[in-house]
């Protein structure tokens, strides 16, 4: 019996490693352990083994079965592994490029806007928004820009015909003309009219001036303004904020200076210069970067705040100008052409 078992095992050991597929394996397996299999035949002969030899024969058979099973398992594992490998195909070339597009990139103006908003968030400012189509009240009257002011001249500001109706841009006074806002300061007015101080907002957005488009001007451009209204807000607080903004943005070596200036909606008013020699393509010691000042009492009066109780400051700057400075871009038109070779460079 042992010989018969050994012969079966030897045969299996020779046959199974050569098998290449699952059907071959199943057929081969049937030849050994199927109902008519060779090992089955040996087992069937167990009945004829004398009783006293049965334990030894049983051990022999069990051992042979285990050894055969090991051969089968190994063979099956090998065949399945080969089949899986065949399904997977050849190994990948990790250096081939992905055929998928991407990654997508943010526009540089978005990057700069969001960075500024994060910087302002850190010191308690939230981001406000308002319509780009405005009325004369929000864009001019409330900001101490009287009707005869040159900024309101149709030479400088885009207007809509008197017949134009904007369903979701409310007019403060009947008959006001609609226009494209010339600055995002109108958002300050809308915010202040919504509720009482304290207010700390930053309002980035588009603004429009009736101007020739060239390397540094665009009829449609982006501004970012901030407004803080509270009790006892001082000129020194304003300077501290501007210092914070630019040292956060450009590093602690950045110097800021205020030059007295004139804006109708702030008093006193300043232009802000920054000294950042470490930036590329900067060949002047001081670069003008924005305007600011203490909110003019007349602005508070126009939104119903008591100027004796509340004080505040406002600061505004052009986002394109800032982006041009940060990224050393020398033509504003690149921001609006959207050449992917340009857009891809910033994030």
């Amino acid at each position: 019996m042992q010989d018969a078992l050994n012969a079966i095992l030897a045969k299996a050991a020779a046959e199974f490693p050569a098998l290449a597929s699952r059907p071959e394996f199943e057929a081969a397996k049937a030849r050994f352990v199927g109902p008519n299999g060779e090992l089955t035949a040996v087992l069937k002969r167990m009945g004829s083994v004398p009783k006293e030899e049965r334990p030894a024969a049983g051990r022999m058979v069990n051992e042979a079965k285990a050894r055969l099973q090991a051969v089968l398992d190994a063979s099956l594992a090998r065949i399945e592994a080969a089949a899986e490998a065949a399904r997977l195909g050849p190994a990948v070339d990790p250096t081939l490029p992905s055929p998928d597009p991407g990654p997508g990139k943010y526009h540089p103006l978005t990057l700069v806007r969001e960075e500024m908003c994060r910087i302002m968030h850190k010191v308690g400012f939230s981001v406000a928004d308002g319509p780009e189509v405005e009325t004369e009240f929000y864009c001019f009257d409330a900001l101490n820009t009287p009707p005869e002011h040159t900024a309101r001249d149709p030479q400088d500001t885009f207007y809509f015909p008197p017949s134009a109706r904007f369903g979701n841009v409310a007019r403060k006074n009947p008959g006001e003309k609609y226009l494209l806002r010339t600055h995002t300061s109108s958002v300050q007015i809308r915010t202040m009219l919504k509720g009482p101080p304290p207010i700390r907002i930053v309002s980035p957005g588009r603004a429009y001036r009736r101007d020739t488009t060239d390397a540094t001007h665009s009829a449609c451009f982006h501004q970012l303004e901030c407004l803080s209204v509270d009790r006892n807000v001082t000129v020194r607080d304003l300077k501290a904020l501007i210092d914070h903004v630019f040292s956060s943005l450009l590093g602690p070596d950045t110097k800021i200076r205020f030059r007295p200036h004139y804006f109708g909606y702030t008093e006193p008013s300043f232009e802000v210069d920054l000294s950042a020699r470490h930036l590329p393509k900067v060949n002047k010691e001081w670069i003008e970067i924005g305007g600011c000042g203490m909110v003019d009492p007349s602005v508070f009066a126009s939104v119903g705040y008591d100027p004796a109780v509340w004080t505040g400051y406002a600061f505004g700057m052009g986002l394109e100008r800032l982006a041009m400075l940060l990224y050393a871009v020398d033509d504003i038109r690149y921001f609006y052409q959207n050449d992917l070779r340009f857009l891809g460079q910033f994030s």
Binding site: C117, G124, S126
Partner: peptide, 20 residues
């Protein structure tokens, strides 16, 4: 002289509102 405005600390008492 506006150049002589002394440096200060930003008072940042937390956000007054949510982003729009």
């Amino acid at each position: 002289g506006t150049e002589k405005i002394p440096p200060g600390r930003v008072s940042a008492p937390g956000l007054v509102g949510e982003d729009d």
